[in-house]
Design a protein around this nucleic acid. Structure first.
Lengths: 198, 198
DNA sequence: TTATAAAATGAACAACGTTCAAAAATGAGG
DNA sequence: CCTCATTTTTGAACGTTGTTCATTTTATAA
């Protein structure tokens, strides 16, 4: 008998992740409170700390879920045989639309900071790898003489470039631009990167 | 007689800005405490709130100073008559080096978030404009048929792209790359953007 | 059923940003 | 130079955080 103990604990964990995800989605990472999470999960405040080390641990799990969602969205947006221009464009626009439709969850991916000294755990860093992989696949055909690692680095650079444009826009720094113009700029940038030869 | 009153108040304000700047530089925005700022400025805790509405107001002033520093650095890095490739490369590398040498102050520029609802004041948004201007000047020569506004938007896109690469790297998301590789990637990206035609 | 171990609870704690009644400093009138 | 109304400075106190822990409740095995 595996027992009711573990079952309840896993259930609590799941409820906390759901509650935390919903609260971040609705109110953003900055307005997240441990007490709100516990209340929405139907648990006592202390219960959170029987399942996670601290709030950061819970947030990391929420971000894991968001990354998985993003992975599914991006995978659905491309076809493996497409030309690099089409793939970059599809990926960029799908990324933009994901960011727009899940703004707070997407923001949490990049706004969240670990406390002083402690760094993001390895298992969570690894969850970002698929982003690189999606770009590296078509890019490798464009860089036949480059090592696998160099392609990965360049893929990271291209992702970061597109991400930077979206991120700076949605953060509301500088003067804002309309979604239509943002989509146009992303389209232009994706084209420039796809056609680039260094 | 303008009085000792206003003088002391301005002095307090200046000391608070200096103290806050130093603390952010040394410990980062996340570890900033109102009590630490007041102590280092040689003031009482409450004094901070006689000069600024809240911590955010003070942080905005610190970020203003950082932006001015950045502006001076970037202006010194370029010559107005240079070709676009050279200008983009100089700007990008100067930006990278500024970010590396004043990491915490630079991070504070983009990590800082206003509280729920309130948005960054207009006067502070305007302080970012020089970044666009620096890029727009050489870019305009490359986009002779584009309107002034379209050039500004494209300049913003290019800045955001380079910023994204630097930002994602220094944040320590994904697996880290060495400063040398980062410099190489920035160089490549600056070249791609300078030679681009949409 | 009972005894032992585990888990859930929420009051309590420390640390934070912010406020405000009280104290100190300032400047004009005598 | 003294006086006292006004302004500024002060830091104790407040409300709200994340986190802990003694206590209570629950689950399991004998």
């Amino acid at each position: 008998m595996v027992g009711q103990r573990q079952t309840k604990k896993e259930d609590l964990k799941a409820r906390l992740i759901v509650a935390c995800t919903e609260l971040i989605r609705e109110q953003g990472l900055k307005n997240l409170r441990a007490r709100d999470i516990a209340e929405r999960a139907g648990a006592a405040l202390g219960g959170l700390y029987t399942v996670f080390d601290d709030l950061d641990g819970l947030i990391l799990r929420v971000n894991s879920g968001t990354l998985k969602q993003l992975e599914n969205t991006l995978n659905a947006a491309i076809s493996p045989s497409a030309a690099i221009e089409e793939t970059f464009l599809s990926l960029s626009l799908a990324y933009l639309r994901f960011a727009l439709s899940e703004r707070n969850l997407w923001s949490a991916l990049f706004e969240h900071r670990m406390p002083e000294g402690v760094s993001v755990p390895e298992w969570h860093l690894a969850e970002h790898a698929f982003l690189i992989g999606l770009i590296a696949a078509p890019l490798a055909r464009h860089m036949p003489d480059a090592s696998r690692q160099d392609v990965a680095i360049r893929a990271r650079t291209f992702f970061a470039a597109v991400h930077g444009v979206i991120s700076l826009s949605l953060e509301g720094r500088f003067v804002g631009i309309t979604p239509e113009v943002l989509e146009r700029e992303i389209t232009v940038l994706a084209g420039i990167l796809a056609r680039s030869r260094s």
